[in-house]
Design a protein around this nucleic acid. Sequence first.
DNA 1: CCTGCCTTTTTGTCTGGACTTGAAAATCAT
DNA 2: ATGATTTTCAAGTCCAGACAAAAAGGCAGG
Lengths: 229, 229
Amino acid sequence: MTATYRDIKSDILGKITRGEWTPGSLIPGELELAETYGSARATVNRAMRELAEEGIIERKRKSGSRVRLTPLRQARFDIPVIRREIEEQGRAYRYALVRSEVVEAPEWLRARLALQPGSQVRHLVCLHLADGTPWQHEDRWINLALLPQALAADFSASGPTEWLMSQIPFSAVEISISATAADAALAAHLDCAAGEPLLMTERSTRWNDQMVTYVRLVHRPGHRMTTRY
Amino acid sequence: MTATYRDIKSDILGKITRGEWTPGSLIPGELELAETYGSARATVNRAMRELAEEGIIERKRKSGSRVRLTPLRQARFDIPVIRREIEEQGRAYRYALVRSEVVEAPEWLRARLALQPGSQVRHLVCLHLADGTPWQHEDRWINLALLPQALAADFSASGPTEWLMSQIPFSAVEISISATAADAALAAHLDCAAGEPLLMTERSTRWNDQMVTYVRLVHRPGHRMTTRY
DNA sequence: CCTGCCTTTTTGTCTGGACTTGAAAATCAT
DNA sequence: ATGATTTTCAAGTCCAGACAAAAAGGCAGG
């Protein structure tokens, strides 16, 4: 008989989707809702809080909660560890190191990572394959000033992503997704025609307010990122 | 003096990022944490629950909570209402209807929306512009069996997205992002060269377990979706 | 009319206690 | 041993009551 916070949540969501409570309209206060559902205010609060987090409603002290006029839609994509992503499809994962060098950071990278002129970076190019066919091309730059261990690390057997996760497991990240055309090198590595449109993910990772690494991941032709909610 | 759930959360997160609690290791139980922080178990619970939601830790009844070995990373992108997105940049939004027709659903659409053969759909092609330059190309298909109102609706002044939101504000959606090459028509509309790589967002919207609409949004050349966390 | 202060309303958070649930572990029966 | 059953433990949820904090609205003084 007693309503759980889930019950309350889905009941309220139902009222909204059925159009009983229209966008912009005021929802009864927590106290009132607690009474109608026969539960404690804390329970109603949790239901409402989660609805607010999901972008369904908007809450403000004193003014109360109202149904959002423009439902704030947000898509959540899981960023998989590539080895996992491939192995979960029942395919064989293979990794190949294409190039490894230590260089002075080029201009564009310095701007992006806010590096001093003359900074040394480790530059790696690798390929991730599923059942032998190219899956993802990784172009990785690591700030050696912050991660001098990267100088000695060996990336011939496993990728820098996994190594980095062991070094700085939790950090602030900026992710950006765009479309790019395959140049000659990419086309060769990803086994596609030059000029082919490819999905690209760029990630800048920060640690203690300093940029640690920048990576440009180019996915195989036809790759799509999908989510539902 | 008393610790809030935020304090607890950031303290625990600190212990993890500083490496005091390493990936895979067991975190003290809620009761123990409540004692060390001098707070109620419910407060600790909230802190831990949120950390779990954010993919930092993993919780299991009986076994306890542990730091995730592979931090589950997830990117959250806001799906903006395009008019807003443009106006918030201080640019003038303009909408143009390129094509509007009522047709029998083509094969590929029937498969995607699970439609009966012979189903009628409203097909719209529109363009969203910022300061007069093309911003996004919208190719929209609406299931008339579910939304007969779409037959009479007038889309010459404002886009179908806004109209749809007023009709079915909250619904289940599948979003998918990929890269595509501009064909002749797209190139003309988006004012770019044919073959140019473009970011494409596809959305299928469901309501009461029936597919209502499918839309293919192609962004202007160079567009990027960005998020940080 | 405007400005700053106070009151009131509503959400936000916390407490300390309780019961529920899921799953691992231990026990028991075959 | 092996499979079924019970125990036990940690997280999950709930409650009733309390205080905190933001913000809208009203009031008073200039």
